[in-house]
Every structure is written in C-alpha cells, then in structure tokens.
Design a protein around this nucleic acid. Structure first.
Length: 626
DNA sequence: GTAGGGTTAG
C-alpha cells in the first residue's frame, strides 16, 4: 500500500494567538468544502495543533475528502494512523477503494474489519458493492444474509448489480424479483442488466411497466440497449417516442441515437439530431467532445465526409477518440491520403495515438493498396510507440498484403504471429485467395479451419466461392452440404435505404415492401437500360450450378438492386442515393451501380460491411479494388 | 460523520 508521509513538516508550537477559535463543526465544514490537497493538509495540520487528530468524526471526514479528491494514498495513511476506527472509518476506506476499482483491496479491508470485530452495516455493503465486479459475489451475499441486511434496498440493489456485472444474470433476476421494496435505481439496475446481456425483450417489458416513473436515465439505458445490441431502428423509434412524451434528452441520450443513425446510414435522421443539438444551445461555437465524436462517426458512416470534417474542426479539446473517428472515417471511405495527413496533424498537436489509431491507419493503407506505407505504420507502432500489435493489426496487414496479391507474405505473417490468429484473419486470407484465384492455398487454409473446428459461415461461403470460380461444382456442392451438416447458416444479405426519415429494408427477392410492384417495374426498366448499354450480368458470382438464365434472375433481385430501384423511384432526380448493405457488395451489383450512376446522372453512395463505395458517372471511388 | 444508475472509435 502507498505510504506517502503525511507529516513532513512538524506542526508549529501551540500558541494562544495562532489558532482562531474554530469549533469541531466549523472545521468539519471546512474539510467538506476544501478544494485541494494543500488546503486539506493545512486543515489537517491545524487539527493536529488543536489535539483534534483523534477526533473520529473529523478523521472520517478528512479521510473521505482525501480520497474523493483522488488522493487515496493520503486516505490510507490517515486510516493507518487512526486509533479509534469505527464502522464509519472502515466503510469509508472500503468505499475509497471500490471507487478506485481496487476491489481486492476493498475486500481485504472488509475482511480486516471483521477480524477487528467491527460489525458491518448496510452502508458497508453498499460501499463494498459500489458498481464493482467484486468477487466472489455469492460470499458477499451470504454475509449480507448473515447480518440481516437483505431487505435494505441499497444493499439488494448493489447485489443485483454485482451479480449482473459478474455475468450471473439468473441470480440478479431472482434477487430483484424478491426485493420487498424497489427504488427507481433498483429498476434501472435490473434494466441495465437486461440490456447488457442483450435481453431486449425482457428489458422492454420492464421498461414499459415503469411507465409514469421513468427518468431520463431509464430512457437512456433502454435506448442504448437497442443501439448496442444491433437494433438501431428500435433505438431511433424509442428516441422519437421519448421526444413525443416530452422527456428532455441529455448528452448521453444523443450518443446511442447518433450511433444508430450511423449503423443504418440514416443521414436525414442524423442531420435532424445535429440540428436539434445546435438549436439546443445559443450560438455556442465549440462542440462537446463526446457528442462531436459521435457526430463525426455518424456522418462518416453515412458517407458524408464534408459534414464530418466540419464538425470535427469545431470540437473543443479533441481527444484521441475524436481523432480516431475522423481518421477511420477517411480510411473506410477510401481517402487514405487524408487519413495519413490527419495522423500527422494529430501528432503535431501532441496527441498520443492509441491502438485504434493504428487500426485506422492500416485500414486506410489497405483500402488503397499502400503496402510500403502499411509496413511503415506497423513498424512505427512497434518501434516508436512501443505498442505490441494486436490481432486486429495483424488482420489489417493480412488484408493489405493479401489483396495486393502478396499471399505468401500474408500467410507467412499469420504463421509468425505469437498470438492466435482469429477467424477474421483466416477469412481475410481466404478472401484474398478467392480474389487472386489461388485455389491450392485456399484449400489448404480451408481444410485447416474445418479440421480445427474454426470454420464460420464465411469460411464455407468463401471456399465454395473459390471452387465455383474455378468451375469445380463438385467441390462447391460438397462444401455446401458440409455447411448444412455443420448447422452454420449463411447470413442473409440485406440492404437498407433511408427515404423521408424512414428506413426501408430489403432482402434478396423481397416482395414485402408496400411499393413492391413499382420497385420491380423499376428493376425491369433498369435492366433494359443496362442491356441497351451492352451490359452482361456477371453470372460467375452465383455459386450454384444452375443455368445461365436462372443465374441472371437470381442476380437481378439482389437486395442492393431492390434498394437502388426503390431509391430511384422515391427520390427526386439528381438526389444522391445512399444504400447500406450488411455484407460485402457483390461484383455484379457493383458493376450495375457504376452503370446506373452514369445513366441516371445520380451519385450512389453504398456502404458495405467493409467500406464505402461512391459511384459517380460510371466509376467508383474504390477503383474496383475492394 | 456514511451508500446506488447511463459514455464515443474497429
């Protein structure tokens, strides 16, 4: 434990005039109001002068103030010097440690407290459980029972929180259900527990049951729960309802809401939130860093880099997260030079890069095939910043090398890794094999993955892709049946487009949209335009051994084409069409997007799983390299 | 003289 000496300067000799007539009460107030360590040390010295350094209450207050000002070591030294430790003293030192996330020490103080025969009370347990992942929670629960404190709302809430944080969802629920009295905090804690475990239905049930008693935090937890668990549309819907119910959102509310706009690429909604924020304050120039970062991220994910940059430049006190968002924004939109430039600016501002910064930089290099620059960054991170590359950094490098056709180099890098390569890395390598038609390496890797139980749906799809491209239909069929047997399912492709603040979702061959008829009519028209320009469908992307005509038909109804058709009929000519796809864009759809952008004179922005494609006048910003 | 809830980048 830290042992910073407290009494370096000996107290001055007592004199009748030096010490004004402070009472214990006024000293207590002084301690509570003190703003700094120096101030506190002065009061402390004065306690010593007045022979009050054995005063339990003043010592307690002093100890608490030291730790709340962030000087845990002073708090501990004082605790060690306190002769008459009562339950307050012990509780306070426990609280100080859980506040600093020092759970083991907190627990050890609790144990010492018991050996000193000081009986804990509700405050002790509340402090011990204070939002921590303290373990073992079950033993603490037993102690709570033993001391008869189960029915205390604070303690029970702390236990529910403790179980939830430790991942014991069932116990948390059981305990919550048995609580005789539940406070708003108890409900919020349980709600958070559901939300963190992805139990959105249970969370929503509890949330709906709290009608009339919901404060802004409750709304935030529910809204954030949706955003964090891949339900951005539900998040946005609930946010709208919050506004309808006249609950005033705060900064925290806006973060998941903006994140959701970004997730679905809902630029109109995002802009609306942005103007809502701007209207909320009266001409203040700077933007709060968290909201600013969330806005930058949202605009980048909606493909509007100009807007992102405008907000970014206005952020007050940019931290590394803010820089990362903008750098990553440039990276996934293929503006690698801008990303690298911004990194140098960041360096100039004296902000130290984090491991995410390097993911962003390597992503930027990957999207433009900058192999040399990529290696330079990879080495810079290791040598200059002394950061050990993580699996994600290796992933970026493998992607970069693999796509540049340097398959052996990529494979060697994976083999040289001290950490275990994750399925993403293997998938990246397989993808590169498919891209460069390296069947033998592709097979070798796929077999390794299959025999080591590392195969995901992506592995199967890529392997059948590799076989199909080589015309090996037997191989492709074998892989498909293997996939069926293993029970993994291919994630269905899905595209979304936002029109008039509403998000429309399409899957391949979708007939569910109310405007289906018009959409398919538009699709036919698109096809006649394309045929007129001499376009031939890229049927080799179809993985099944079926007739050419059937292949063409299956391509025509790909989700991104449905979304495009809907976009064309429901927005004014000249408007940019923005589509978001959950998987990578297919080769045929990519070609179609290019041609349609030329034929209609519209810009099309498409975000796929990996990056952005800005189609304009017949070409794409990715340079057909993705 | 004591105790509790939400935070952004891949």
């Amino acid at each position: 434990m830290a042992t910073t000496p407290l009494f370096i300067t000996p107290p001055p000799p007592p004199s009748a005039t030096a010490a004004p007539p402070f009472t214990v009460e006024t000293l207590a107030v002084l301690i509570d109001k003190s703003k700094s360590k120096t101030h506190l040390l002065q009061i402390h010295a004065s306690l010593v002068r007045r022979n009050l350094d054995d005063h339990t209450i003043l010592n307690f207050k002093l100890q608490r103030r030291y730790s709340s000002l962030g000087h845990l070591n002073y708090s501990v030294t004082l605790f060690n010097r306190t002769r008459n430790r009562d339950v307050y003293t012990w509780t306070s030192i426990i609280h100080a440690h859980t506040q600093s996330k020092l759970n083991d020490q907190a627990l050890s103080y609790y144990a010492q407290m018991l050996t000193h025969r000081i009986q804990p009370n509700a405050f002790t347990f509340s402090s011990l459980l204070n939002g921590s992942t303290i373990q073992p929670i079950k033993s603490i629960h037993c102690h709570v029972i033993k001391f008869g404190l189960c029915s205390d709302t604070y303690v029970a809430t702390g236990l529910v929180d403790g179980y939830a944080r430790g991942g014991d969802f069932i116990s948390a629920e059981k305990l919550f259900d048995k609580m005789p009295e539940k406070s708003l905090i108890s409900f919020t804690t349980m709600l958070m527990c559901y939300a963190k475990h992805g139990k959105l239905l249970e969370a929503r049930l509890l949330f709906d049951g709290m009608e009339g008693n919901r404060d802004v935090v409750v709304w935030n937890v529910m809204i954030d729960g949706y955003a964090q668990n891949g339900f951005p549309n539900e998040c946005l819907l609930l946010f709208r309802r919050m506004l309808v119910e006249k609950v005033k959102p705060n900064v925290i509310t806006l973060l998941p809401v903006l994140s959701s706009c970004g997730q679905v690429g809902a630029l109109e909604s995002g802009r609306w939130v942005h103007s809502y924020i701007k209207n909320g304050k009266d001409g203040v120039v700077g933007v709060e860093v968290r909201v600013g970062t969330a806005l930058v991220d949202m605009y980048c994910k909606c493909g509007s880099l100009e807007d992102a940059r405008k907000v970014f430049d206005k952020i007050d006190g940019k931290d590394v997260v803010a820089w990362n968002s903008m750098i990553m924004g440039y990276a996934v939109n293929g503006l690698s030079e801008e990303a690298l430039k911004l990194f140098h600016e960041m360096h100039g501002e004296g902000v130290r890069p984090s491991y995410v910064t390097f993911i962003a930089l390597l992503t930027a290099c990957g999207h433009s095939g900058l192999v040399t620059k990529g290696w330079e960054m990879f080495n810079l991170m290791k040598n200059e910043y002394k950061m050990e590359p993580r699996v994600e950094h290796f992933g970026c490098m493998v992607n970069l090398l693999g796509r540049a056709g340097r398959l052996q180099e990529a494979y060697d890098l994976v083999r040289s890794m001290k950490i275990d390569p994750d399925p993403v890395i293997w998938g990246t390598l397989l993808w590169a094999c498919r891209l460069h038609n390296n069947i033998s390496l592709g097979e070798e890797i796929a077999e390794f993955l299959l025999s080591n139980d590392l195969a995901s749906s992506g592995t199967y799809v890529l392997l059948s892709n590799i076989y199909a491209a080589a015309g090996n239909w037997d191989g492709a069929a074998k892989v498909r049946s293997l996939m069926k047997d293993s029970g993994v399912e291919k994630e269905p492709g899905c595209s979304i487009i936002e029109v008039n603040n509403r998000v429309h979702e399409f899957i391949a061959g979708d007939l569910k949209h109310p405007k289906s008829k018009d959409i398919y009519l538009m699709l036919e028209e698109m096809n006649s335009w394309l045929k007129g320009k001499g376009y031939t469908p890229k049927t080799d992307v179809v993985l099944h051994d079926i007739g050419e005509e059937q292949k063409e038909l299956s391509l025509e109804v790909h989700s991104e084409k449905l979304a495009l058709a809907f976009g064309l009929i429901s927005t004014r000519p000249g408007t940019t069409v923005k589509i978001v796809k959950n998987l990578r864009v297919c080769l045929d759809c990519h070609a179609v997007m290019k041609m349609i952008s030329k034929i209609t004179g519209r810009r099309i922005v498409m975000r796929d799983r990996n990056r952005f494609h800005h189609f304009d006048n017949g070409s794409c910003s990715c340079g057909d390299f993705w």
